[in-house]
Amino acid sequence: MSMTLFSLTIQLSGLIIGAVAFGSIALGRYLTIKGEYYFTRRFWIVFLILGGLLLLLALVTPHFLVSASCSILGFTFLWGIGEVIEQEKRVQKGWFPENPNRKKFKKKRSP
């Protein structure tokens, strides 16, 4: 995607996809924390399915910007698989709040 301003043509693809990458990192971080909090580390399955679907979509979509955005989000979600498992360890170390409604988890920690 490009834009012409007073006979100067600028390439907007880089800026757009860069912003998408920035947003997807933020989204991945948010989903990791919230996913672990509400759904335990088994949330990695959601990341795997969403990431795989997005990568498939990225390969199939002819539109470049849509495809690139899907690809970046897909890879971010695949990264999130490892991150959500790490997140459980961080919660056990007390770096992040744990869900108080999770009784089994609490029992494991208390002794």
């Binding site: 990568l55 990225a58 390969l59 979509t61 495809s67 690809s71 970046i72 989000l73 890879f75």
Partner: peptide, 13 residues
């Protein structure tokens, strides 16, 4: 098959 979009994601990763 849109390799270009996929490769962008890989490189961003």
């Amino acid at each position: 098959i849109n390799y270009e979009g996929f490769l962008v994601g890989l490189f961003a990763f």
